[in-house]
Amino acid sequence: MDISNFLAAVLTLGIFSFLYKDNPVYRACEAIFVGVSAGYWAIVFFFDNLQKKFWEGVFPPDGSAGDHLLWFGAILGVLMLFRLSSKIGWIARWPLAFIVGATAGLYMITYFVSNAMNQVADTMLSLIVVNDVTGSIIWTQTIGALVVAVGVISGLVYFFFSKEHKGVFGATAKVGIWFLMITFGASFGYTVMSRMSLLIGRMSFLFRDWLGLIG
């Protein structure tokens, strides 16, 4: 018997036992999972960040010139450790402030362009789609464009916070929330099916790799 498969199967069943109720086996599996994964990530972060990115970046193994800008990151990292002191623990807020501020600034242009401006450009569709050759209206594409137009405008109205949802504005916002809910319903079904594939993967492991009951 393959001992690793056996252990994996026992741990899988232990986690599944939570479906019945909380029990000592689940607690043991949970503790193993949390402990092993926390230790694993500690090692990964140490070697990926401290050794590869920082140490080998500042002192490259091939003897080439190091990137001394990395010292800045290292100093910020050391500042985080000031939390351990009750007197000068406030210094640890500086690197946090730097991370939040730098991230906001770094992503602002990318997010604004991709999540706002380009979305606006892509929504500027013709509401009447005509066949170039025959000159007749292509109804399926025309209806599709209308659905996009109504969905986007009413959705934006729903997320407009400066005006009470009353009258025509409220009715438009209601149409917007309907569009959102229909989209979420479709997304729910799609995502549930992808979760099913995860369950099938575990079942396949138990019945094929461990028990050998299926080919």
Binding site: I15, C29, E30, F33, V34, V36, S37, A38, Y40, W41
Partner: peptide, 10 residues
């Protein structure tokens, strides 16, 4: 833990 499902289990 940083591990997604380890966190969920806890």
């Amino acid at each position: 833990t940083d591990e997604q499902f380890g966190y969920v289990a806890a």
